Computed example of a mutant assay.
Amino acid sequence: MGFIGSVFSPWYAWSGRKDPENHVCINVATYGPGGRFTMTDRGRDALRQSPRKFEVGPSSLTWERGELVIDINEISAPPVIGRVRGKIRVTPSAITGVELPLTPDGAHVWRPFAPVSTVTCDLEAPGWQWTGHGYFDANFGTRALEADFAYWTWGRYPTASGATCFYDATRLDGSELGAGFHFDRDGSARAIDLPQKRALPRSLWQVRRETRGDGPARQVMPMLDAPFYTRAMVETQLEGQPSIGVHEALDLRRFRSPLLKPMLAVRVPRRARWNFGI
């Protein structure tokens, strides 16, 4: 994930969130034995942007002939410290035109650029090479997430014809968002009737989780657990067919706690200075 204004950075929160370009990062997480997590908060000297390239220090995202090429060169955070380096290619089947406002005033927007993509990962460690299906999306906002939301979940599930995404959120004012979209491989999208919510067991940090589907859902593999956030591979059923996708749950009430910020600083180090060597 690339951030301008790193929403989960304690350094950005402590700064008052007034200068997003002074808090940028590229976050990488790998899973399974020897998994790594990198989320270095960098200053404005580390940011360079052009219409086709986004650079944060030693890592970058570049559009090249219809592919998003992600060059990674980061150091992972404790408890497993080590270099995470290599290349990831995201090849969209098509680019969508969908934007979903998450609040009535449009202060938060979800933009699923390429919900149906092929991903090729080639990182410099044994077992970190694979090709499979994936997606590329973005969230934009003009206010802090915890200023407007109490809780949300998101899920992206591949289907025979493309992918289906669900977005559910509870806002601080008590109103709720529930949205579902199916994306075809040609980039066309349509809103769908929402299947029933399906409860999942709480995460290791006891974050509440739920997704949607036509039948019971289950966790296939844990991916990332934090006191306020969880990511996992989840199996659900859509139109009678099983589908395994990526699911996220975010508890913004927990994230709002000032006690979490010092804990996050261990996993999200601050590196204010950078020189591109020009």
Results as ranks from 00 to 15, higher is better:
Q206F: 06
D184S: 05
R212A: 00
L204A: 15
D214K: 06
G213H: 13
R209P: 12
T211K: 04
T211Y: 04
S203R: 06
P195V: 01
R190M: 12
F183D: 03
R190L: 04
L200R: 13
F183C: 03
R185T: 11
E210M: 15
V207D: 09
E210S: 14
G187A: 06
R202T: 10
D193C: 07
H182V: 13
H182M: 09
D184Y: 12
A191Q: 07
R209G: 11
D193R: 10
S203C: 13
V207K: 05
K197D: 00
P195R: 06
S188Y: 13
W205F: 14
G180A: 14
P201V: 06
H182P: 09
S203K: 14
D186Y: 00
D184K: 02
D214Y: 10
R212E: 02
L200C: 13
R190G: 08
A199L: 11
F181S: 00
R212G: 03
H182S: 15
L200H: 11
K197S: 02
E210G: 12
A199P: 12
A179I: 07
D193N: 05
R185F: 03
L204P: 08
S203G: 11
A179N: 00
D214P: 09
Q196D: 12
R198H: 00
S188K: 07
A179Q: 08
P195N: 07
T211E: 07
R190D: 07
D193V: 11
A191T: 02
T211M: 10
A199W: 09
A199S: 13
R212I: 01
I192W: 08
P201N: 03
Q206C: 01
A191G: 06
R198D: 01
Q206R: 00
D193Y: 00
D214N: 07
A199E: 13
A191V: 06
A189V: 15
R209Q: 15
Q196E: 05
L200P: 04
I192V: 11
R198A: 11
T211W: 03
D184P: 01
P195C: 02
R212H: 09
K197T: 10
R198C: 04
A189C: 09
E210W: 14
G180P: 00
R208L: 06
D186W: 01
A191W: 02
G180W: 03
L194Q: 10
G187K: 13
R208I: 14
D193W: 04
Q206H: 09
R185Q: 01
P195T: 03
S188V: 13
P201T: 03
F181M: 08
P195L: 09
R185K: 12
D184A: 09
G187R: 07
W205D: 04
G180F: 04
K197P: 15
D193P: 00
K197C: 01
F183W: 12
S188H: 12
W205E: 04
V207W: 13
D186K: 02
S203I: 14
R198F: 11
D184T: 07
